[in-house]
């Protein structure tokens, strides 16, 4: 994909990606970093497809991979930004708040809080151990005094319910 195509995709997709990342990290600064790294990686090339739909899917693929890597490591990858010498714009508190407002973060927090409250105590505790404390499933199972498959099932069902709550609260972004 040539440079102009990447920049044109940036014009089309950056707003949606900013909302996507903000809603999943709950942090507008991190979200802007992730948008920047997504397109920095795209500028570095590697795309082999031909159609517009494939190009869009490729950008979203980079975005999802970066988000997954962030969740896994707890820090954002910035290799492409460093390599290209790109400085992403700094945000003031007011600008960060505007991005969070665009992403509907307030409503999202309410939706997550409601969904968490609606979970059973067992599922909520399993989610806390696995997602917040990042414990391995055998450890989660041991802490809760249940088998590993049961621990996996509780976390999986809890996550599914939260995901349904988030989908219901997803805003429309032009």
């Amino acid at each position: 994909m040539d440079r102009d195509t990447v920049l044109s995709l940036y014009e089309r997709l950056s707003r949606r990606l900013l909302v996507y990342f903000t809603r999943r990290t709950c942090d507008s600064e991190l979200a802007l970093d992730l948008v920047a790294e997504t397109f920095a990686q795209a500028l570095q090339g590697g795309y082999r497809g031909t159609s517009d739909a494939e190009a869009v899917a490729w950008i979203w693929g980079i975005a999802r991979n970066l988000l997954a890597a962030y969740f896994k490591r707890g820090q954002i990858e910035r290799r492409a930004l460093r390599r290209l010498g790109i400085e992403r714009p700094a945000l003031t508190d007011a600008e960060a708040a505007r991005i969070e407002e665009l992403a509907g973060l307030g409503e999202l927090r309410e939706a997550v809080a409601e969904a968490l409250a609606a979970l059973g105590a067992d599922q909520r505790e399993a989610l806390r151990l696995r997602v917040v404390e990042e414990l391995e499933y055998p450890v989660v199972a041991s802490r809760l005094g249940i088998t590993e498959p049961t621990a996996r099932a509780r976390v999986s069902r809890g996550l599914r319910k939260l995901a349904q709550a988030l989908e219901g609260a997803e805003p429309e972004v032009a």
């Binding site: 950056s14 707003r15 802007l32 948008v35 570095q44 090339g45 290209l84 992403r88 714009p89 505007r98």
Partner: peptide
């Protein structure tokens, strides 16, 4: 947010892949 993204877009445009 659109103005912030425009600034980031300008930074991306200035970057030259090596």
């Amino acid at each position: 947010p659109d103005e912030v993204l425009a600034d980031l877009g300008a930074a991306l445009r200035r970057a030259r892949p090596q």
